[in-house]
């Protein structure tokens, strides 16, 4: 097994993520219950979307304390690569593995649409040469309004940690931020759902290059080298 897909009570994009990774991109994947440990053979982790623990208290606030998160933190410290999608992004922020937080959409509505996104030149894997400068991916969230204080925001921009920005901001997110990475370059978080854009019958297939870029190092059996910026 290469890709571990974490399952919390209320996760609902876990099967979609497994299908996209395993059936469409042919990389072995397995769903792992939040009370288990992270399997030793894990090479990459996806924290999928959904409503973990009913979004009670705050999105991701309770999932952050699930037993598997200890293993996930160790995995990240060792340079393991992690992608958080939607609620997964919220969980990674709550856990302090990514900076900032996601609050209620400024429009106060749940936004569900195929969203145009601008691709930033972030690092070797997530950049315009892989995806082109513009893609669209489905979004479906009520709390996708990214917030960080001025210092954190300045660091994100200075280190080119923004992966994706909204074209036509759907939720009030600061600097139109739709996805970010950590400074080391092994933890990624995004509100859009690449796993919902991989099949001919999906609204688009722009999720394929996004997931492919994330999986590239383990496909080559060559885990990413961490860089300081």
């Amino acid at each position: 097994m290469k890709v571990a897909i974490l399952q919390f009570p209320g996760s609902n994009c876990d099967w979609d993520a497994e299908h996209a990774v395993q059936d469409v991109l042919n990389v072995p994947a397995k769903r792992v219950w939040h009370k288990s440990g992270l399997p030793a053979e894990t090479e990459a982790v996806i924290v999928p979307g959904g409503f973990s623990f009913g979004d009670y208290l705050r999105c991701g606030a309770i999932a952050r304390f699930s037993p598997i998160m200890l293993g996930l933190k160790e995995f990240v410290e060792k340079g393991g690569q992690v992608l958080g999608i939607c609620n997964g992004f919220q969980i990674l922020c709550e856990a302090g593995l990514l900076p900032g937080a996601l609050v209620r959409n400024d429009c106060m509505e749940f936004r569900c649409l195929n969203q145009s996104l601008r691709v930033e030149n972030s690092n070797d894997r997530f950049n315009q040469s892989k995806f082109g400068s513009a893609i669209s991916l489905p979004i479906a969230h009520g709390e996708g309004n990214y917030r960080a204080d001025e210092t954190v925001l300045a660091e994100l921009e200075a280190n080119a940690q923004v992966l994706l920005r909204y074209e036509g901001n759907p939720n009030g997110s600061i600097n139109d931020i739709a996805g970010i990475r950590n400074q080391a370059g092994n933890v990624y978080g995004m509100m859009p759902h690449p796993e919902r854009a991989v099949e001919p019958h999906h609204p688009c297939q722009d999720g394929l290059p996004v997931l492919d870029a994330f999986l590239e190092p383990i496909r080559k059996n060559n885990p990413i080298e961490l860089s300081a910026s």
């Binding site: 609050v103 209620r104 400024d106 106060m108 309004n145 917030r147 009030g172």
Partner: peptide, 14 residues
Amino acid sequence: SPKTTVLDPQGAAV
């Protein structure tokens, strides 16, 4: 409570 520096869409709607 939401920090005064953070946008509070719920507060604005109320």
